[in-house]
Amino acid sequence: MKILNKLPKSKQSLHLDLINNGWVQMKEPKNVRSAILFSVPLMIVNVLISIGVINIFSTISLSDFGLTSDSISITINFGIILWLALLLILHELLHLIFIPNFKKSDKTFVGITLFGGFVITEEEMSKSRYIFITIAPFIIISVILPLILSVLGLLTPTIKFLILLNAMASSVDMLNLFLIMKQIPKHAILKSNGPDTYWKTQT
């Protein structure tokens, strides 16, 4: 595992090697900005799913976040900033820990950029494992966690805010899920070259 301060770039030599060996490059947004833009509808869907989950055992309203019909009250302090940092780390950690042998892998990269954190691995893996890695932060933080905390009576307004924020931040992950489901056959294997994804049917 390597820690970087920017997204790794795709390597032309690796691209040519993959293409010559029967790998197919997946059609994806060309950059992070485009991915965020295309994922906005999924951001809304994710938030609605999380709100629905929270409402099963608890309640959620605008007043939880300092918003009422006649006033807006938003407080930003060091505690909130710390929670946001921890959420970012947890989100990326949940991607990372499900990558096979990530500790020993010299093809797995983690880091933080202006647009948030990232985890990229150039290790080969099955489509099902790739999908699980992609959606793990959303499922665990924004679906399973609110259910558990609701039952325990620990779902505070701050935690609700963080759960919804994670749902929004997971929209690019959901876009990747949609692209994988649409373009890649069931029993294919996947491999990344920097931010680019390739697939190949297993023989």
Rank of each mutant, 00 (worst) to 15 (best):
I3A: 13
L4T: 12
N5V: 07
K9Q: 12
K11I: 15
S13P: 00
S13V: 10
H15C: 09
H15D: 10
I19T: 13
N21P: 00
E28R: 11
S34N: 15
I36P: 02
V40N: 08
V40F: 09
P41L: 11
V47M: 09
I49A: 06
S50M: 05
V53C: 04
S58F: 05
S58N: 15
S61F: 02
S63K: 13
S69M: 08
I72F: 12
I72G: 07
I74G: 11
I74F: 14
T75P: 02
I76V: 15
F78N: 15
I80S: 10
I81N: 14
W83N: 14
L84I: 14
A85N: 13
L86P: 07
L87Y: 06
L88R: 00
L90H: 06
H91C: 02
L93I: 08
H95M: 04
F98E: 05
I99M: 01
K103Y: 09
D106V: 10
G111C: 05
G117H: 00
F118H: 05
T121R: 02
E123R: 05
F132E: 09
A136W: 02
P137N: 10
I140P: 00
I140G: 01
I144N: 09
L145G: 03
L147W: 00
S150G: 13
L154W: 07
T156Y: 07
P157D: 13
P157I: 11
K160Q: 11
F161C: 11
F161P: 02
I163K: 00
L165G: 09
A169K: 03
A169T: 06
S170K: 01
D173S: 12
L175A: 05
N176V: 02
L177Y: 05
F178Y: 13
L179W: 04
I180N: 01
K186L: 10
K191N: 07
S192E: 04
N193Y: 01
T197V: 14
T197D: 04
W199L: 09
W199I: 09
